[in-house]
């Protein structure tokens, strides 16, 4: 075959692969928007589910998702930022400890999310929670069962690598000259970190937090048995309450509700809400990250 023809064919095949992926992405978006838009209105967002979940809104699922991701961020962000500081500022690249920590972070990033769910169940609920009940409540069951706190903590472990990676990347874009300027003025290492490195990494910390929240809002497997509930007539009032979540709501409604067809509009609209939520968060994060990378150049 002629070389030019071959070139064209190969380029065509690779190009078609790109188009296929983009087509799928667009299809998912289109289907969700077309299916969900008609039912998306203020009542839907602000009401509790009604009539055995076949009517009404998803207010508690929105609030539950928000609460869970906030608690998650409060737990994950400080730990993530500090670990990133360690990796970028304290660890020498060749040290075994730093390498081990890096490997551990990568492992956390690839462990299947369902394993976090198992761990949350075995560790937070079965171990910490049960022991807390034994010590604080005289054995009465309170913490030794699924709740929003344990679900958030479980999710925090899952999103920890997201925070670490973003923050470390941002820290590393701070020019060496800035650190040298600070140290040459007689600042200690910690003063340099606190007054030069961290203020310069604010956008990275923000990016990491947003990405973590977006990820946490969409994940379902880790909260399947650590705190998410099918239906609650009330919002969670304490950390030991269960909660409703958007992702879990979609899963339950689409696979296990007794009348799948009647709830179809709700399912689509809920999916649209979740997608809009994670997308807008991601868009903000990507923009921020783009700015950080531009600064690095």
């Amino acid at each position: 075959m002629n070389r030019n023809v071959k070139d064209t064919i190969v380029e065509g095949i690779t190009g078609v692969s790109v188009l296929l992926i983009i087509f799928i992405i667009v299809s998912i978006l289109a289907v969700t928007i077309v299916g969900g838009w008609p039912n998306l209105n203020w009542t839907f967002l602000s009401e509790f589910p009604k009539d055995g979940m076949t009517k009404g809104g998803i207010f508690p699922a929105i609030v539950g998702t928000a609460m869970m991701t906030i608690i998650m961020a409060v737990a994950a962000v400080p730990f993530g930022v500090i670990t990133a500081i360690y990796l970028a500022e304290y660890a020498s690249e060749k040290s075994v400890i730093a390498k081990t920590i890096r490997f551990a972070v990568k492992t956390l990033a690839v462990v299947p999310s369902i394993i976090f769910g198992l761990f949350g169940l075995g560790f937070f609920i079965g171990f910490i929670g049960k022991n807390m009940d034994g010590l604080l409540n005289g054995g009465e069951l309170k913490w030794g069962q699924p709740n929003i706190l344990w679900a958030s903590f479980t999710m925090a472990l899952l999103t920890l690598p997201v925070v670490i990676v973003s923050v470390e990347e941002a820290i590393r874009t701070i020019p060496r000259e800035m650190r040298e300027a600070s140290l040459a003025l007689g600042a200690t290492k910690w003063q340099t970190i606190r007054r030069v490195v961290l203020p310069g990494s604010v956008s990275g910390i923000l990016t990491g937090t947003i990405l973590a929240v977006s990820r946490g809002a969409g994940e379902v497997a880790p909260i399947l048995f650590t705190g998410a509930a099918y239906f609650l007539s009330d919002l969670p009032r304490s950390l030991s309450d269960q909660f409703m979540s958007l992702g879990y709501h979609i899963y339950i409604m689409s696979t296990q509700s007794s009348n799948v067809d009647a709830t179809l509009p709700i399912q689509f609209a809920t999916t649209l809400v979740l997608l809009l939520l994670t997308f807008s968060l991601n868009a903000v994060a990507v923009t921020l990250r783009y700015r950080i990378r531009k600064r690095a150049k």
Partner: peptide, 19 residues
């Protein structure tokens, strides 16, 4: 655009597959 796909929660992909 392709990296957008990484931002789709798997429950959304699952829902799309199911529906």
């Amino acid at each position: 655009v392709i990296e957008l796909l990484a931002g789709f929660p798997s429950v959304v992909i699952g829902f799309f597959a199911l529906m």
